[in-house]
Nucleic acid binder design. Structure first.
Lengths: 219, 219
DNA sequence: TAATAATTTTACTGATCGGTTTAGTAATTA
DNA sequence: TAATTACTAAACCGATCAGTAAAATTATTA
């Protein structure tokens, strides 16, 4: 049996508890609005212990935010035989991820502190949007090479797809935390976004739009 | 000659000075990160005077944010004979407004404090995006009635136009305060956004796209 | 000029902040 | 069991916070 010292297990568990507590408090109150006492209380840890694990408030904050970026990546990995179905699947997967309340809280926190912590804004941009965009570019380019899409600038095409599907509900959700879009509303945005995207970028829009109808089942 | 008492003039001037100072400090430091001393210092006003004008920090903040919404509205009032030219003019006008550093700082502030001050988020949504959207809907509907556009849902069409033109650069700018898009980059987004929009929504895309080329002067 | 209204200065409250110290207790290790 | 390590509770530090009180000073009015 592998011998992992109990000490280390406790330490890691406690560290995780602190990180979770700190993230939730930071997300709810902002950086300046969060007190280390509040974090210690929520983590069920004494304040000196908190300071032993993470030297300062700023260190704890940056560490937590830079660690969090790994949880928010998601690749464009929905393989299938049909492009429209793949796009539809990706759209829903991404919407479900991005529109979760905790995810929105985190985004508000990052945006709100972007001026005070530019490195965190950069890290988020690189690990979140940029990564998703890269995956989308790869996928869209492959579809273009397969003759199903047509465009000159793959980056613009990917950004268009994103903007068509999620910009409206996400921007609204950022301003209105207590008014999270229903799945029916998301479906409306996704269906419309895909429709416009295909109409503008598909080599055979008529066929793909028909396929979209059979998938979404709308009129 | 009209007799406006000097007292009131001074009062209004001082009030304006306080509001300007408070807005800049709040935008730079966030709500919790801003001290009333800092505002008083920047406004060149004593703290008791500050408190005499605005009872509490929270009152000052909400008052300032609810007042600010009037400056950020802009109507879709770019009349002309050519739809493509009008859309192009609107796109630039709106981009120039929305991508200004102070405007972005304000947006970051509102988003960052949306959970603590839901009313401010609501007011901003109603006075900013919703108002612009209403103007766009009116305009697009008129163009549809004139036979130049085709769509079922005017709201979705307006949101698509917005998302195609500004969602990518704006989202990026929200995360990266020190990396504001150049006018060339904005031109790229605007040209591409209008192109995709016309391709998906124009009744005669070929003609409108040609017109777009002559306006933007690109290849 | 005399009266008055507004503002400033200065100092102060009580609370909270980030961060530390101390003294003592519980858990792990050997 | 004994030594060690990690932890807790509590008080504490200096600084800063929102907000107030009082007295001195300035500007406006009549």
């Amino acid at each position: 049996m592998t011998a992992i010292p109990q000490r280390e297990l406790n330490r890691l568990a406690k560290q995780r508890r602190i990180l979770d507590a700190a993230l939730s408090v930071f997300a709810a109150e902002g950086y300046s609005g969060t007190s280390m006492d509040a974090i210690a209380l929520k983590a069920a840890v004494s304040k000196p212990t908190l300071y032993q694990y993470f030297g300062t408030k700023e260190q704890l904050f940056t560490e937590i935010m830079l660690a969090e970026r790994n949880t928010m990546l998601l690749a464009f990995d929905h393989p299938g035989t049909d492009m429209v179905a793949e796009l539809h699947s990706f759209a829903w997967h991404y919407a479900d991820t991005v529109m979760r309340p905790e995810f929105l809280s985190l985004a508000r926190l990052i945006i709100g502190e972007a001026q005070r912590f530019p490195e965190i804004g950069r890290a988020y941009q690189a690990a979140g949007p940029d990564r998703v965009l890269a995956g989308m570019i790869t996928y869209l380019t492959r579809q273009r090479d397969a003759g199903k899409l047509t465009f000159d600038d793959a980056e613009l095409a990917a950004e268009d797809l994103w903007g068509l599907i999620l910009s409206a509900p996400r921007n609204q959700a950022l301003h209105l935390p207590d008014r999270i879009p229903t799945r029916a509303e998301l479906a409306r945005y996704i269906h419309n976004g895909l429709r416009v995207f295909l109409k503008a970028y598909a080599t055979d829009p008529a066929r793909d739009l028909a396929q979209l109808q059979t998938i979404t089942g709308t009129k």
